[in-house]
Design a protein around this nucleic acid. Structure first.
Lengths: 303, 303
DNA sequence: TTGAAAGCGATACCAT
DNA sequence: ATGGTATCGCTTTCAA
């Protein structure tokens, strides 16, 4: 085609506001430039950052994302999946709130590629998650670099693999006799655990918490006991849940799981799969990042 | 068509797993059974419940929802809107984090209907919001019914219309000399305000807070002053942000804005508009609900 | 280089 | 009751 013709056509197209109909082109190309994100995470704690990453990675390529919240309801999940398949989505990303549970719907025989992110997938699927052991290492080495010697780990139920992985990484670095306390993922458990520890006479000077809510409870509990954070005790959280971490007193140093990046990669992967690329199945664990705020003290805090 | 033919066809259709292609039928019917939800609310505090309502109302009708997070970026917003229009969405719901600001994108001349929910729309648009004055009335009458006489209102910046409307409803019921303190929407402002009030000798026995974060700060501040909640002072929040309200000590009695219902209605409305129904433009304010937990005490708390 | 025609999958309408 | 055909908007292919 001639250069001038090309520009002329483009000009006219712009003039009359021509807008190619994606439905029509999808009909022919057998691609809808649409993917689905299925989630059972009601609070959006994990889904939103993940979704932001997916969307950010795909919007340039003209791909839009259906968000389907299924609330652990298998029937609802089916309805959403059917609706998405009808609409010829190019792929589906399944996400949840914990990596050791699957969504209440079987996605293994769909005519479109499925990628799992922060939720369990069937064998031979591609599953993204953050590297819990790595996150725990970041936290513990940070505490140790600050000179903390007596470390403790206060975390969620031992029914969560994430809790177990963080705990075993903690023990590996902090010593196998360092206390690990399993409870709930709540503030009140954090407070309770601190009271127990202090009552028992065991008084760690560095505490690694399984999530930010627990960490917040720990910090509150310590304050109520008159123990200074970060003066006497350093506290590290996990999740970097802004709303909790930034509002605690002092603001929480915490491990960020880089969910947005996880979302980016999951998005690109599901597209690649849709374009016929063959990719290695299995777990893909992404590194975490330590976000330093004020709850640990030390040089790292002086900036 | 004959009854037997009908069943025979249906059987065969099920057998071969026939699945009508929504792209093809959309091409002809000029409906995609797809709508877009545009939001600049990063935390999802407002968007997620709203989205849940939209989705719940529309999934039965076979409509799926594109979620587009635009982060206050006009260029990104345009890209998302273009992508949705290309995909022939049947309508768009614009949502945000405050009702007195518009999204950074002009949605007024789109070829599809637009409904605004929890964000400002242009004149003559349909805009859903919760009724702030009503919410404030619920809170104040609850406090008064419990016998609280000296009320105060601690809330966010007076640049927010929502804050002003709640404040003026508060004054109307509690008396024009009842103190109203404007600050930030944060816990630390809640604590600070309490310290100020107590230092000044002004000691209300009922406090209505502009949101749950402030309320949580207020409760913490009171505890640190040795003032019992709900024994000496009753506290009501606003938002029913589960994660804040349920974790505070005591759990927070708070006003729920019924965002899910708001989402339901916005979803049904945008569909109706798409089907050519003529609807009255203007604000549509939905009533709030009071959610009683433990921060007010009294009979209402005995159940 | 340009123009015409076939076809994607479903539907609506018209003949049989 | 059935079969055939035009159509939606675009892409691809083939002819001119």
């Amino acid at each position: 085609m001639g250069e001038e013709t090309r520009t002329r056509i483009k000009r006219i197209a712009a003039e009359i506001g021509f807008r190619p109909n994606a439905l029509a082109r999808g009909l022919l190309s057998r691609r809808s430039f649409t993917i689905g994100l299925l989630t059972n995470d009601t609070y959006g704690r994990f889904t939103l950052p993940l979704m932001a990453g997916v969307s950010e990675a795909l919007v340039d390529r003209g791909v839009s994302v259906f968000l389907c919240a299924i609330e652990d309801d298998p029937a609802l999940a089916r309805v959403h999946v059917e609706a998405m398949l009808d609409k010829q989505v190019d792929g589906i990303i399944a996400t949840g709130k914990r990596t050791d549970r699957a969504l209440p719907v079987d996605l293994s025989d769909l005519p479109v590629p499925v990628v799992y992110a922060f939720t369990a997938g069937p064998p031979n699927s591609i599953t993204y998650a953050s590297d819990d052991a790595h996150g725990a290492e970041l936290a513990v080495t940070h505490l140790m670099a600050l000179g903390r010697k007596r470390l403790a780990h206060i975390t969620g139920p031992d029914a969560f693999i994430a809790a177990l992985e963080r705990a075993s990484a903690f023990r590996r670095l902090a010593g196998s006799d360092a206390p690990v306390l399993h409870g709930q993922w709540t503030e009140s458990w954090g407070r309770e655990a601190i009271l127990d520890l202090w009552k028992s006479g065991e008084r760690p000077d560095g505490i690694f918490c399984g999530n930010d809510m627990i960490a917040r409870g720990v910090i509150d509990g310590l304050r109520e006991l008159g123990v200074s954070v970060p003066g006497e005790v350093s506290v590290v959280g996990f999740d970097n849940w802004e709303i909790v971490a930034a509002q605690s007193r002092p603001p929480l140093t915490t491990v960020d799981m880089n969910l947005k990046e996880l979302g980016r990669q999951a998005g690109l992967t599901v597209l690649a799969l849709g374009e016929g690329e063959k990719l290695e199945p299995g777990w893909r664990k992404l590194p975490c990042t330590l976000l330093v705020r004020g709850s640990c003290g030390g040089a790292a805090n002086d900036r």
